[in-house]
Design a protein around this nucleic acid. Sequence first.
DNA 1: ATCGGTCAAATTGTATACGATCTGTTGCCT
DNA 2: AGGCAACAGATCGTATACAATTTGACCGAT
Lengths: 231, 231
Amino acid sequence: MTTAATDPIDIDTQYIREAIRDAIVDRRLAPGTKLSEADVGALFHVSRTLVRGALQALSYEGLVNVEKNRGAFVANPSPEEARQIFATRRMIEPGVLMEAARHITPSDIQHLKQLLMEERRLMGERGQSARRAEIKASGDFHLMLTSLTKNAVLQRFMDELVARSSLVIALYGQSAISSCGHHEHEDILDAIEKKDLERACKLMIHHIDHIEADLDLRAEKGSELKEAFRL
Amino acid sequence: MTTAATDPIDIDTQYIREAIRDAIVDRRLAPGTKLSEADVGALFHVSRTLVRGALQALSYEGLVNVEKNRGAFVANPSPEEARQIFATRRMIEPGVLMEAARHITPSDIQHLKQLLMEERRLMGERGQSARRAEIKASGDFHLMLTSLTKNAVLQRFMDELVARSSLVIALYGQSAISSCGHHEHEDILDAIEKKDLERACKLMIHHIDHIEADLDLRAEKGSELKEAFRL
DNA sequence: ATCGGTCAAATTGTATACGATCTGTTGCCT
DNA sequence: AGGCAACAGATCGTATACAATTTGACCGAT
């Protein structure tokens, strides 16, 4: 076996950024968790300098909050933030769909179908890690669709939106996703394959609506004291 | 005169980031210009540490390119990038418009009208600084519209898109903006005021189309050697 | 004269050192 | 006992020092 996982030689800001990002999106790091520069640096055997860079980058993505002179914490998105994220997805994703459909090839469709099969397989599994993998696979469908647009700007926006959505789903999801989420991806792909873009768009919007509807966004949750006390 | 411009007391990463950003968007820094960490640091009387943070942030926004071991350069967007930026705006801005219209108040409309008057005033002026101000005012209309949505995620996306658009317009614009660009903002606002959202959306799309149509995006320009030689 | 290689200057990459700020605790005073 | 102030530990913010890399110049060989 390689030693890559525990003893990677080339640790740079980017590597750390992605490692933390994955951990957050996979919910191995709980929202609110403090990410001390010294601790993270020790973990990766690098100085605080590189860690700071990674944390700053993640704060631009909205995955961590950095509080001045207090440190960085895994983001704990408020219900309001969650709503904004999904509102933005509703605006963008129909366009993504249309643009992706213009470029899509039969080979792309095969790849997407394969992803959906993998997703379905995971759905059968039980346990927390399966649920993580399911959330991830669900996001990957949207990201792969986006990659077909060959639009780097859009890709970055969607990367951020999907990552933050994962966090929100993990926080507020009521776990009915399994039942509704999956068919919808297949239906969307079907509509694209049949060039029925109008239907595909409609399905996409409904899909996003359903994901958001599965969330429990009633104000109080975790740490939003400021909101709770109307400060 | 005040010494604020040359001797500000509180210089932090954010301040530097905004200063450079403004300079790039205003085109006081030409695309391709090298931003040496030491030089910038000397200018603001800070160490390279803060400058690096600012440059990294700007690279996430797509306003500067950081090349490993070579330094940071003011972005020189390729025609392809320009197309992607405008394609993305076409996807997002109709949604922005709809959402903004839902929240808009008479007072907001007054503010927007005031902005448009200012814009029109600048249009009368001549010279490079007037053109800069005009490009800026033109972007501000879109940003102010976005701010009405009260959606922070969206706001950040639009901030980036508008900033990069300014760069692209400065680079590839053929300066016919004056004639077409302005009426369109007024027309859009009119349509919003009359609650004719369908018309407002259509006008917005056309507006973006017109801006892009005014660009000269034929491949070769400046430094895109890789493209030029098909590497 | 041109090509190739070696070397020096300049610039970035990373680590470390030091100062500033926050947090929690201790102990005194009322 | 309760509250306030001073202090100590920990953590972040910034600057500086040193290592690694790039770039351009010089110089000798073909």
